[in-house]
């Protein structure tokens, strides 16, 4: 799908966050165009998940600006940001343990729809994501892959324009990752923009339109995958001597 080059759907400018003596995120800025898949990569502790927290309203930045569709969202509560069209998944899967899969996705769909329509919407989303067969299971009893797809389903049920995915493919084999990848591409083709934190480099290289590399809380590169591979700073910080095989 061609990327639109009008106003960015998300614009992050000079965002910083310090935890005590640790500068977790330092003056990071980037734009995301509508329909784009941006992958954020970086070594452990580089600040990727903190950056997601800053964008989605769970952590308040010390400074900087985050604009969603042109509106400043710094200081807004997470649920209000969801209502504006930005939702997120969590690195450590956060299930609603005492609900069924259908109920968990219905809870998400209720953000925009009344009760009966929300149940219908949840059923549609589960069908689309391929979780219909386990709609009455408890999320706690699901496989890791299904739990991760349930995270995606909850995000999609809120009718978002932008989804932040935090390592939804971590822990999956490359073969297992094929299904979530196909679903993400399908969702992107239906107009949803993605920003994803991912560690599995072959997946990142195959999926992302653009890569943003963080190291020690700072942005060290922001370019298409092919350019990132030849970036010396990235090689030093992230890949070491070993090049990833895309």
């Amino acid at each position: 799908m061609p990327v639109e080059h009008s106003q960015p759907i998300l614009s992050v400018k000079g965002v910083s966050k310090r935890f005590g003596g640790l500068m977790a995120v330092s003056e990071v800025g980037f734009d995301v165009a509508k329909g784009e898949i941006l992958a954020i990569i970086g070594p452990n502790g580089a600040g990727k998940t903190t950056l997601f927290g800053l964008i989605s309203g769970f952590i308040r930045p010390d400074m900087g600006s985050v604009r969603l569709k042109g509106h400043e969202i710094v200081g807004m509560a997470p649920h209000k940001i969801v209502r504006m069209g930005l939702t997120r998944s969590f690195q450590i899967v956060q299930v609603f343990a005492d609900m069924t899969v259908l109920e968990a996705v219905t809870a998400a769909a209720l953000v925009r729809k009344p009760m009966r329509e929300a149940v219908r919407k949840a059923e549609e989303v589960l069908e689309r994501i391929g979780l219909s067969a386990i709609r009455n299971e408890s999320p706690a009893s699901l496989s890791l892959q299904d739990k991760k797809m349930l995270e995606v389903a909850k995000c999609v049920a809120t009718d978002p324009e932008l989804i932040l995915l935090d390592e939804v493919m971590a822990g999956l084999t490359l073969a297992e990752a094929e299904l979530p990848l196909a679903i993400i591409r399908d969702l992107r083709d239906s107009g949803i923009t993605f920003v994803m934190v991912e560690h599995v480099m072959p997946i990142v290289m195959k999926t992302a339109d653009r890569l943003l590399v963080l190291n020690f809380g700072q942005k060290i590169a922001d370019a298409p995958p092919a350019e990132i591979l030849s970036n010396q700073a990235v090689r030093d910080a992230y890949f070491g001597e070993e090049m990833p095989h895309a």
Binding site: H79, V82, F90, F96, M99, E103, A108, C155
Partner: peptide
């Protein structure tokens, strides 16, 4: 029920 099970996850799907 969403809040009871997980406050962060509840907020992430738009629950106030």
């Amino acid at each position: 029920r969403a809040i009871r099970d997980n406050e962060n996850a509840a907020q992430a799907v738009g629950v106030a």
